[in-house]
Write a protein that binds this DNA or RNA. Sequence first.
DNA 1: CGTTCCCTTGAGATCCGTCAATATTAGTGG
DNA 2: CCACTAATATTGACGGATCTCAAGGGAACG
Lengths: 245, 245
Amino acid sequence: MGLNTNTSVLSGPFFRGLKLHSSDHEALSSVRLAERRYAPHTGITHQGMTDERAFIIQSGWGCVYKDLPDGERQVLDFVLAGDVIGIHPMGGEAQHAFVSITELHVIEANARAVVAAMTRSQPMAQALLSIAWRQNNIMAEHLVNLGRRSALARTAHLLLELGERLKVAGQADNQGYDCPLTQYDLADALGLTAIHINRMLRELREYGLLSLRRNRVEFLDYAGLVELAQFDGKYLEYWELKDLG
Amino acid sequence: MGLNTNTSVLSGPFFRGLKLHSSDHEALSSVRLAERRYAPHTGITHQGMTDERAFIIQSGWGCVYKDLPDGERQVLDFVLAGDVIGIHPMGGEAQHAFVSITELHVIEANARAVVAAMTRSQPMAQALLSIAWRQNNIMAEHLVNLGRRSALARTAHLLLELGERLKVAGQADNQGYDCPLTQYDLADALGLTAIHINRMLRELREYGLLSLRRNRVEFLDYAGLVELAQFDGKYLEYWELKDLG
DNA sequence: CGTTCCCTTGAGATCCGTCAATATTAGTGG
DNA sequence: CCACTAATATTGACGGATCTCAAGGGAACG
């Protein structure tokens, strides 16, 4: 596994701009990386099993969810290009599952080695903490979404969030983006039924705010959507840690 | 700040059993610690402001929440003895607020220094990652709670979770525990109205499952509650990271 | 002994889920 | 290109869960 691969990993938004010294390169190169592609709708990690892989998403869509005893599921987050997942507890059972939605191109790393590298490279530690914090902020905003917004605002909020996150990877603009999610996927993320998602999408369309048809989200009135959803994308930023001393 | 204080910090459940070498002690002692007490219902950190403190809760109850433009709020988590919070983004605005509910006895540290210490002490890094992961698992379970459980099961689930977490600190057993939360607090955490919380508590009482009166939770039928709430406390464990190499 | 939280209850409205049926799309093989 | 199938999307009618509005009761605290 040469330096080339590692360099490509560093092109993600959170690593960009990091000043790496030779010891950091050493720490990073000690993390074995492997490129892999998964077919659509493939289980990648499973609930209740030990899995020591971390993933850096290169392209495609995936989703992280939790299964319930009664057969339902709650989607915790959709996973997009540039996202990093799997920086999670090892030595115990995974609490979530991870599945591809479209074809998914990822770089896999040994999570144990990634964590070990944190203690050897300060930029590495900063980058990983930054990632973990953003993930935490996203989950917090999802909690707000489920707890305190109507089904209509909730739906708008998620579709705005996904657009904002895709913009970073150049896969969305203020016009819209390609979205492979079914209404069932949206329902499982938003705590609603697919049937009600359908009604909310119709309302958004009738209000001239947004249209989602044939796997394409079109923003018809971006400002109107932002207001309806009370959307403020600050929680999506990666915060830098400077001057750790 | 002497070693005594630092030693007392290490008595928390996640630090217990850590093997510290001299360099670890050095890293830990570089983190300045200060003991503090806050009166009930005191704002400690605020949304939209920079705050570089981290907190280790010694005793009392607090809560972390997000305010919405329309005046509502969503409680992300209640904070109990042994919890650590504030390992959050610095150099940017805090996304959540932190307030005391009862009198709150905490140890404050400079979050920047704590993060810096991670890169110098592997046990320190392990402990902090363990904490961050648990917090993530808790948030994920709260998402499941809001997204996929009825108001009755949701209420039962939260009260079971708090009981389980208090057990670690010796403040709860299978009989019950003292709980300073108002029905408004519960409502803001569960995405419901206080009025509906009241009805759910009445139902739980009438079903002979649980009673909450005068700031006291009594488990009347623990097994029944667990079944109703689909409660599985695995997500509350601190996972160890061994053999990082 | 009054004031202020907090709790409690009821009636009606609304939001969202459930059930059922049909339409549309995407995929597959001929 | 068509026929067939499975997955996904769409719509309507109905019921139940939760919210809103309104009123009153109880406990803590000065």
